[in-house]
Nucleic acid binder design. Structure first.
Lengths: 358, 358
DNA sequence: ACTGTCGGCTAAACCGGTTTGCTAAACCGG
DNA sequence: CCGGTTTAGCAAACCGGTTTAGCCGACAGT
């Protein structure tokens, strides 16, 4: 019964047992046509009886390929795995990766260091999401010669990028509220990951903000600074943001939210505050995650093809991983407003007040 | 500008450049104390200037460890990543893994074969979720000498397992409806992954079913076969199941659903059918995923500690990966009913009809 | 009988590191 | 000045495979 310490059989064990060279064993698995048929099958029989499987790490080393793709995020995985947006994105990534026979390896800061995590990662290429282009890791990855595709990043010319029309989507959302007669508008944004950081103008949230502001400006409306609140991109974050705005005395008739998760929180907070949606207040989200169509009322939001974004990123990545296409590509996917039940005409009273003020 | 083909620098390049042996370079990184301080720092300077980083695969090979944990699922990742249950579970897994400095590698069927995917995976241990104990891969993993922890699996004695009290939770859910006076009950289950398969009595759904049935039996109620419908574990699956039941002429006052995602679908379908929740029909879910407290009405459901399940699984796994604790352990976490707004007293009319029938 | 080709297999180099065992020089007390 | 211990660093073996170059015998052609 002292089988406990039994070593994992190596290729040399199989070779010895079968009375052939290591080369022959390798051939039996990888190019059987270079062996006499019965030799190949005999070797495989011996291998089976010994329970031999080629050691994947050794294989990676010689073949200089891992058949694994890295998904890089600057945030801890323990924070984002139950973020529905990330889930849908990962689905897209997984779909393309699985089709092409690649496994997925998630790379997140190791003891606080993304660089260290990258150093450990054994992948053939990397899809980075939520990484701003000026992150030092970007250079590290390129220096290591690893193919890289950035998602939702500002457009560095010599990098492959998949992004969406954030600005256009945001403008559509704001236009929608304006057409419904809303003038008192609150904008709820996603706070930057690092507390001190200011809103990056070239980041996702910066672009969406620009879309909102432009649409308002077109109607001669200026967004007052206090009508912009931020919080974490979660339902709770949305609840807190809406409550805080109300405590600050804001009584918007329309709320533009930069994330559906937060928008759902806003919906919830509004209900708790005794506000009816959309009669008293209209809410527009952004992303169109799966649950958004099932909230009560269903959420009006800006749709973006999240899964497709993941899929496209992987396909772009593989085109350079496998075929060594070296020129960087840019893909921009469309967004579109989806009107559901959470938006309606601005309430009369407010409109009148508004008119009197002119 | 012909830097394009510049090879990744190897340890030998650094050694030559610094005028030392490979050994010295290795020491400079891994045990600097074995070198004169200024030698070590000179070597590191040279390494930096060359952009040298130790090749992670080569390192894995010699150190016989990957610092990576595998998460194994029999389903395609492209199907489950946006499943909120899986998201929360992964969060727990990631939390523990990140704390201990391990990365995560997801293992799902490669071209339809889980075994092939396992063969490629370079991990120090595996957490398997949704895998029944009789899957052939279980043996493969053990034969490869890889530490393994099964989650939600039927209790094979010689395997480490993390599970929850499905049966008790289900019983609590059913008791709750019974106490509210419900007698016409519909059970909505999750369909087995492979179409043909029958409900495994030892699987998660089998255990939950047993809990429901026992609670009903205690009150002398037998669940008629047609009062049990199944579907995929998604919102859409729940909608479809509820519609189908209604089309079949069922008019339950209480619905026991084996998954929150499906329960949310049932809520939605009920609203579309003109049924008020909980006045006309009560709904109880299972799992207590994050959104369940934010539905309208908030979902009454059986809570299970999903994140903790992932965390515990990883801690158990690491205890054998790192310390070679070999005896298999079993952990069973508790479930508890959380009463929110989706359940209420059975409607009078139904109760009377019920009474008359006696 | 001699050369050329081909099928079947092998020895040795290689992938890129780490680790073991050892040596030469420096140090040290007596 | 001498034997013993440290210190700093090296050569070689090793991790477990794949791949290149080439050997050997059989067979075909002339």
């Amino acid at each position: 019964m002292e089988e406990r310490t039994r070593r994992r059989p190596r290729i040399a064990d199989v070779a010895r047992e079968a009375g052939v060279s290591k080369t022959a064993v390798s051939f039996a698995f990888n190019s059987p046509d270079r062996l006499a048929p019965e030799t190949a099958s005999r070797i495989r029989d011996v291998a089976d009886s010994l329970g031999y499987r080629p050691h994947p790490v050794a294989r990676m080393l010689t073949q200089r390929t891992t058949h694994t793709l890295g998904v890089l995020t600057p945030q801890a995985l323990s924070v984002i795995f139950s973020n529905p947006f990330f889930g849908a994105f990962s689905e897209g990534v997984a779909l393309a990766a699985e089709q092409e026979g690649y496994a997925l390896h998630f790379i997140s800061p190791l003891h606080g260091s993304l660089a260290r995590a990258m150093g450990r990662a054994t992948v053939d290429g990397v899809v980075a999401i939520g990484l701003s282009a000026n992150h030092p890791e970007v250079e590290q990855i390129r220096a290591a010669g690893l193919p890289l595709v950035m998602v939702d990043s500002s457009a560095l010319q010599d990098l492959s990028v998949v992004e969406i029309d954030d600005e256009g989507g945001a403008r559509a959302a704001a236009d929608h509220l304006l057409q419904l007669g809303h003038r008192d508008i609150l904008v709820v944004g996603v706070e930057p990951p690092s507390p001190g950081a200011t809103l990056e103008p070239e980041g996702v949230m910066g672009r969406r903000m620009r879309g909102y502001v432009q649409a308002l400006a077109d109607k001669g409306i200026e967004l007052p600074p206090h009508a912009f609140v931020v919080g974490p991109a979660s339902i709770e974050g949305g609840i807190a943001a809406m409550r805080r705005a109300t405590e600050d005395g804001l009584r918007p008739t329309g709320v533009l939210v930069m994330s559906d998760a937060m928008a759902i929180g806003v919906l919830r907070a509004a209900r708790e505050l005794g506000l009816r949606v959309p009669e008293d207040v209209s809410v527009v989200g952004f992303d169109d995650i799966d649950i958004s169509q099932h909230t009560n009322p269903p959420l009006t939001t800006v749709h973006q093809p999240i899964r497709q974004k993941g899929e496209s990123a992987v396909r772009m990545l593989l085109s350079v991983v496998e075929r060594r296409d070296q020129r960087p590509e840019h893909i921009r996917l469309e967004t579109r407003l989806i009107v559901r039940g959470s938006t309606g005409p601005a309430p009369r009273r407010r409109q009148e007040v508004d008119r009197v003020q002119h």
